[in-house]
């Protein structure tokens, strides 16, 4: 009990920070900025980004750099929160770095498949390069899958990827790599949850992470059905084998004849009680994930649950800002940008 009480300080701190995040009206204010420079100036005035964007010059800032700084700011915030009560010594709290590592390896695989390996280093965030134990500079020099496996061979990621053969045309089987890496990521997270936390915290966190996976599976299943007309067996093979919903219920979803049937079933899921449409399924799932995270952040007293929920919210905030900056840069009308943001 004392342990759970001692983490209350982190919970309180997170709630306090959450209260200072960009509100809907502030995001709308940002949407109406006319240049990346104006957006940078606006973000420099936001308390949460003030320190991280202090030295940025709005007149010369590059869009990509501004986006990277916003992402870095979230990461630094997460590191500060972990250090606050020495959570960085608990393996579970590395979930953000694990996620970034998984994303970057997948990005590298994509670059190899597309023959643009040199672009990987440009998109690699500096904070990942600095904080990850993986040799990303070496990874960025790989020109083939074999070289990538060689660099990763001493890591768990190497072991996961080793068993995935190349496709007949010689390219890397990206969907299989993605599925296996994500399976490995979530297995590792679930194992940490069971190991690092007492009963009830583990139970809530486990369920919450499974609900997040449900949203990923739902979006993927719907896309496979709508755009590729996959049958139930093929869809099941592509899904992450974790869920908060019963297996039979998920199977019934995958077994739908058409995308419309699937959509009908999705509308009845409590997870998507706020409604969903075929065109906006991703947005609807994101909005549901966002509101779920906010609800948990406000109702839970468990530090790992609140931290996981908070990082999800941060991720959405960063995503919103990036979408707005890109919208401004490419001259999208404010009304169109508004449709893209998750609030």
């Amino acid at each position: 009990m004392l342990e759970s009480l001692s983490s209350n300080a982190t919970v309180a701190k997170i709630r306090c920070i959450e209260g200072k995040m960009l509100t809907e009206s502030r995001l709308h204010e940002l949407i109406y900025k006319k240049s990346v420079g104006e957006a940078a100036e606006f973000l420099k005035g936001v308390p949460r980004f003030k320190t991280d964007l202090e030295t940025v010059d709005p007149a010369t800032i590059h869009r990509g750099h501004l986006e990277e700084l916003v992402e870095k700011s979230s990461f630094e915030l997460y590191r500060r929160l972990c250090r606050f009560q020495q959570f960085d010594k608990i393996p579970f709290y590395n979930f953000i770095m694990f996620r970034h590592e998984t994303e970057q390896i997948l990005s590298m695989i994509n670059c190899i498949n597309s023959g643009v390996v040199h672009s990987f280093i440009n998109t690699l965030p500096g904070f990942v390069l600095e904080n990850s134990r993986l040799p990303f500079l070496e990874i960025s020099k790989c020109e083939s899958y074999e070289q990538l496996l060689e660099v990763l061979k001493k890591t768990d990621y190497g072991k996961v990827l080793k068993g995935i053969p190349l496709k007949e045309d010689g390219s890397i089987n990206y969907p299989a790599c993605e599925l296996e890496l994500r399976k490995y990521y979530f297995n590792k997270i679930f194992a940490s949850v069971r190991r690092d936390f007492p009963g009830k915290d583990a139970e809530i966190l486990d369920k919450y992470i499974r609900m997040n996976i449900d949203f990923i599976n739902i979006v993927n299943a719907f896309r496979l059905k709508k755009y590729f007309n996959y049958n139930a067996e093929h869809i099941k093979q592509r899904m992450l084998p974790f869920s908060s919903i019963s297996k039979s219920k998920m199977n019934r979803l995958y077994e739908c004849e058409t995308a419309e049937d699937m959509l009908d079933k999705l509308k009845r899921l409590p997870l998507l009680k706020d409604g969903v449409s075929a065109q906006m399924i991703e947005t609807a799932c994101d909005k549901a994930r966002y509101s779920l995270a906010r609800r948990l952040l406000r109702s839970s007293q468990s530090a790992p649950v609140v931290m996981y929920a908070f990082m999800t919210i941060c991720n959405f905030e960063t995503g919103n800002i990036i979408k707005i900056i890109e919208g401004i840069r490419y001259g999208l009308p404010p009304a169109e940008i508004e449709k893209l943001i998750i609030i």
Binding site: H65, K72, I121, L124, G126, F127, E130, S140
Partner: peptide, 10 residues
């Protein structure tokens, strides 16, 4: 940017 400076090694 300092982060990019580290990438020059590549």
């Amino acid at each position: 940017p300092v982060d990019s400076f580290k990438k020059l090694e590549f």
